[in-house]
Design a protein around this nucleic acid. Structure first.
Length: 580
RNA sequence: GCGCCUGUAGCUCAACCGGAUAGAGCAACGGCCUUCUAAGCCGUAGGUUGCAGGUUCGAGUCCUGCCAGGCGCGCCA
C-alpha cells in the first residue's frame, strides 16, 4: 500500500512539474508513513514540506496542489491536509477487507517475494567447543536464528555458518588431560565439560610438566599428528553433541551440517598470509606479520596493526576470520554476510572487513555487517554470573526457566494432567527466555530477570502464547474448521480496523527485521498485534454475533490473527500451544 | 589518550533511513466476569528524552562540545 500511495504522489509531482507549479529538477525521496493517530488517516506523506524550500512556496499550498493533481484511486476514501503540510490518506474499508481476505487466502500472507533472491551467509552461535555452552552464547544463537528464519521466510538463500571454536591452544591442554583419564574418552568423563575444562586448567596451572606436555600436544595437533587428531576429533564430537542437544532444546535451527569451525580453515591460514604478502599489504613488526590500516589508531596515534601471524609462526583469529571471509565469498558466493557476535568485537570486525576488501578476498559490493549485541546482565547490572562468580551454564539457566514455568502453569491451571503440564512448562519456559532476549534492542545490554520474562503481563512470551490460545479456542469451542471459511471480510468496528491494519503490516515488519537484523521489531509488532486482538476479542463478539456475515468476517479476522501470531512466533523460533 | 556502545516515567523497555500530542508493561490508584480462557479488557496518574549549543518548517533521532556508565585498543579468542 505504501508503494501504491508513493506512486500516486510521484505522478502528482510529475504533473505539477509539467504545469511548472514545481521546478522540474525536484526529485524528493517519497516517504510514506503509517500514522500513529487514526485521526490522521492511515498513511501520511511529508513531501509537501520537503518541496517547500526548492519550490519557494508554502507547504500547505503545495499539498493542496498535489492533492488536486492526485490520480483517482478507489482504495483511497479521502485525502486531507493537516498540520504544517502533511498529506493524510484514508483507506476505504472495502480495500482493507480485500487486502485481508487476500492475506488470509495466501500461505505467504500476501507478502511478495523479493525481486532479487540474495545469498546471505549468517555467522552465529559460534560456541567454544573446549567448554560447555554458557549464557554468553545465548544472544548470538537465538538472535541469529530469528534473523535467519526471517530471511528464509522472505525468500532469500540463507547459509548458516556455525564458526565454532574447535582449534587453538586450549585443545593441547584438554588432550593432555584426556590422556591421563584411566577410562580414556567416554561420556562419563565428559558428561560435564565445564568441570573437565576446569580440572584440566588446574593441572595446567599447577604442573609445569603437564603444561609442557600440553604445549607439545598443540604443536603435534597442528602438525597433523594422527593420534592427537584422533583424540581431538573424539573430544569435539562429544562437545558438539552437547551443543546440538542445547540447540534442539532451545528450538534453534542449527544442525551439524552448519558447523564449519576454525579448524576448517587451518590449511588456508598460510595461504592467506601469502596472499597478503603478494598484495604488498604485509609488514613485519617485531617478528610478527601485520597489516597496518591508517583508519585505525592505537594509543600513540599510530596506525593499528592487524596481526595475522605471530613471531613464533602461529596464526590468530584474525587470520581464520579472513580465511572464512574468503571462503564465504569465493565458495559460498555470499552477497551479504551477517555476523552475530558480541559488540565487544566491533573493532576486530571493522579491521578484518577492511583487510578482506582491500586484499580482494571479498568483493567491494558485498555487504558485510557485524550485528553486535550487548551483554546479558544480572539484576545488579553486572554480567550475569553464578553466586560464586562463575559463568552460568546454559543448561542450568534453561532448567531453572522450565522449573519456574512449571510452578507457574500449575498454579494457574491445576486441572491439567502431568504430561501436558510438562509440555506446556517446557514451551513456556524456553519461549520466555528466548522472547525476553529477542524483544530487547540488540545493541544495548539488558538485565536478565526470570520474574519479568515469565510474567503473563506486558511484552512477554506467556502473554503472546496466551493470546494465541484464546484465538484457537474460539474455533475449538465452536468446532469450526478454519479451512472452510469463505466469503469476504467486512471491517466495521474500530477494534476491527485496528486489528486489520495491524495484520497487514506483517510483511513490512519482516523486511525491516531482515534489513536491520533486529528481531525486537518483530516482537514489538506481535505484542501490538496480540493487544489489538485482545481488545477486539473483548469488544466484538465473534461466535455470538447475530448477523451471519459479521460472524463470518470476524472468524476470518480471528483466523488470520492466529496464523500471523503462529508464523511470527515461529520466525522467532518459538513454538505455540493450542491450550495452556 | 584514542575509538565504539549506552543514557528516555520510580523500575524494565519501545519509538518505523528527522514528522504531528515521546509510547507499553511493572509498581500506584479506579472500573469491568450469569456471555468465545479475567493468564484478559477499559481508565487515572506519572517526562525539561544526561547537560549545553547548532542544523531544520520540524530533533529522543542528525552535527559539535561537555557529563555519567559499559566495553575495546600488537602477537588470547
Amino acid at each position: 500500500m505504501k508503494e501504491r500511495i508513493a506512486s500516486l504522489i510521484e505522478q502528482a509531482i510529475a504533473t505539477l512539474c509539467e504545469q511548472q507549479v514545481l521546478p522540474t529538477d525536484v526529485a524528493p525521496r517519497i516517504q510514506i508513513d503509517r500514522t500513529r493517530d487514526k485521526s490522521h488517516g492511515d498513511f501520511a506523506c511529508n513531501v509537501a514540506m520537503m518541496l517547500a524550500k526548492p519550490a519557494g512556496k508554502k507547504p500547505r499550498d503545495i499539498a493542496e496542489a498535489l492533492i488536486a493533481a492526485l490520480p483517482q484511486d478507489d482504495a483511497i476514501a479521502d485525502v486531507q491536509i493537516a498540520g504544517p503540510g502533511f498529506i493524510n490518506f484514508f483507506v476505504t474499508e472495502d480495500f482493507l477487507g480485500q487486502q485481508l481476505t487476500a492475506a488470509l487466502n495466501d500461505s505467504h500472507f500476501g507478502i511478495a517475494k523479493p525481486t532479487h533472491t540474495q545469498t546471505v551467509v549468517v555467522d552465529y552461535s559460534g560456541p567454544n567447543l573446549a567448554k560447555e555452552m554458557h549464557v554468553g552464547h545465548l544472544r548470538s544463537t537465538i538472535i541469529g536464528d530469528a534473523v535467519v528464519r526471517t530471511l528464509e521466510f522472505l525468500g532469500h538463500n540463507v547459509i548458516r555458518q556455525n564458526h565454532v571454536g574447535d582449534w587453538g591452544t586450549q585443545f593441547g591442554m584438554l588432550i593432555a588431560y584426556l590422556e591421563e583419564q584411566p577410562a580414556g574418552i567416554n561420556d562419563t568423563a565428559l558428561s560435564d565439560l565445564e568441570s573437565f575444562y576446569r580440572a584440566a586448567k588446574q593441572r595446567f596451572d599447577e604442573s609445569e610438566e603437564f603444561a609442557n606436555r600440553a604445549r607439545q600436544l598443540v604443536v603435534a595437533l597442528q602438525g597433523g599428528d594422527a593420534h592427537c587428531l584422533e583424540q581431538w576429533r573424539a573430544f569435539n564430537s562429544v562437545s558438539l553433541r552437547h551443543c546440538l542437544d542445547v540447540y534442539q532444546r532451545l528450538g534453534v535451527s542449527l544442525s551439524a551440517a552448519d558447523v564449519r569451525g576454525e579448524s576448517a580453515y587451518n590449511d588456508q591460514l598460510s595461504l592467506i598470509v601469502d596472499a597478503l604478502r603478494d598484495s604488498n599489504m604485509l609488514v613485519e613488526n617485531d617478528g610478527a606479520q601485520c597489516v597496518f590500516l591508517d583508519q585505525f589508531k592505537n594509543k600513540e596515534g599510530e596506525a593499528l596493526p592487524v596481526i595475522v601471524q605471530k613471531a613464533d609462526g602461529g596464526y590468530l583469529y584474525a587470520t581464520s576470520d579472513l580465511a572464512a571471509l574468503r571462503y564465504r565469498q569465493q565458495t559460498l558466493n555470499a552477497e551479504r554476510m551477517l555476523y552475530f557476535v558480541d559488540q565487544r568485537q566491533a573493532l576486530h570486525f571493522q579491521q578484518v572487513f577492511a583487510v578482506a576488501k582491500q586484499a580482494g578476498f571479498v568483493k567491494t559490493d558485498t555487504d558485510l555487517a557485524h550485528m553486535g549485541f550487548g551483554t546479558m546482565n544480572g539484576a545488579d547490572g553486572r554480567p550475569f554470573k553464578t553466586r560464586d562468580g562463575g559463568t552460568v551454564k546454559l543448561v542450568d539457566l534453561l532448567d531453572e526457566a522450565e522449573q519456574r514455568a512449571l510452578a507457574l502453569v500449575k498454579s494457574k491451571n491445576p486441572t491439567l494432567d502431568d504430561s501436558e503440564l510438562t509440555n506446556i512448562a517446557h514451551t513456556v519456559g524456553i519461549a520466555s527466555v528466548k522472547y525476553a532476549d529477542l524483544s530487547k534492542n540488540r545493541s544495548s545490554d539488558y538485565i536478565f530477570n526470570f520474574d519479568q520474562m515469565l510474567s503473563f503481563e506486558g511484552n512477554t512470551a506467556p502473554y503472546l502464547l496466551y493470546a494465541y490460545t484464546r484465538v484457537v479456542s474460539v474455533f475449538r469451542k465452536a468446532d469450526i474448521d478454519p479451512a472452510t471459511l469463505i466469503g469476504s471480510m467486512n471491517i466495521q468496528a474500530e477494534q476491527e480496523q485496528l486489528l486489520g491494519n495491524s495484520l497487514l503490516q506483517f510483511g513490512e515488519v519482516l523486511n525491516h527485521v531482515a534489513e536491520k537484523g533486529l528481531p525486537n521489531l518483530l516482537c514489538n509488532y506481535l505484542y501490538e498485534l496480540a493487544g489489538h486482538f485482545s481488545s477486539f476479542y473483548e469488544h466484538c463478539p465473534i461466535l455470538s454475533s447475530e448477523d451471519p456475515a459479521v460472524r463470518n468476517s470476524r472468524l476470518q479476522l480471528a483466523w488470520l490473527t492466529a496464523r500471523t501470531l503462529k508464523a511470527g512466533l515461529a520466525l522467532l523460533g518459538i513454538n505455540t500451544l493450542e491450550r495452556m
